[in-house]
Design a binder for these strands. Structure first.
Lengths: 131, 131
DNA sequence: CAGAATCCAGGTGGATACTG
DNA sequence: CAGTATCCACCTGGATTCTG
């Protein structure tokens, strides 16, 4: 054996399956299935942004959640953090190539939500009135 | 005015924007950005499944979360629930056309996670050792 | 401006037991 | 089998305060 000391390998081979609760992809899927992750990535799709710019773009995120989300994404190699040691420190975040591939995927979820909101609303109304 | 009694319209027009914390799509995005939603939809992509079959497929879901997830999806018009009043009641769940369009989208997230797990792992190791 | 640290209310979700 | 109802431990995440 070379790697995996604690993490139980997908299935001894190289096959990952998120349906398996012990597969590491299950945890990754959970991490990516997040409102903030989606919004952060989509916001960065247009280009690098500073911490404050992101907060202004994604209205409603607390500073804590934004930092937390960015840290996790940075650790996963999805986002890159660049520090410019100027007087007030300047920190920029931008998508890595890996991050760009993920962004196009999660962006679709956001787009879907915005595109089908009306249908969903109609369905809810129908469901609720039907009791 | 015709509809929207309580919900604040997107922006008086028909433009939805999940970046707006008051836009209903923000809440919808949050609802869809869920591990279980993703797994349930992908599981149903292959065809209708019963409650128990879903539980067996998505190992690790508690019965409570599965029911809760299915109810929300049903209300949103994404999943359809069919009851067959046999002796032990039979309940089948299947994707609606709306649900099918969403499934192809969230499936991509699951696929991405499974396809890039190695890269993410490598990035994490690098990040952690670099301290 | 970026972010680390604390405090803590409230939501999340698992386990368990019970109904039809 | 499908589903509801409770109980409750744990975690999430917002607000606040403080540092470089």
């Amino acid at each position: 054996m070379t790697t995996t000391a604690t993490a139980p390998a997908p299935s001894a081979s190289g096959v990952y399956d998120a349906f398996d609760p012990n597969c590491p992809t299950r945890q990754l899927l959970d991490e990516l299935s997040d409102k903030w992750v989606c919004l952060v990535l989509v916001a960065l799709a247009a280009g690098p942004l500073r911490h404050g710019e992101l907060r202004r773009r994604i209205r409603g995120v607390s500073q804590k959640m934004l930092t937390q989300t960015l840290r996790a994404l940075e650790r996963d190699g999805i986002v890159e953090r660049t520090i410019t040691p100027s007087v007030p420190v300047r920190v920029d975040y931008e998508l890595t190539p890996l991050g760009q591939s993920l962004t196009s995927v999660v962006d679709a979820v956001k787009v879907w939500a915005e595109a089908h909101m009306d249908q969903v609303d109609a369905a809810r109304e129908d469901y609720d009135t039907r009791a």
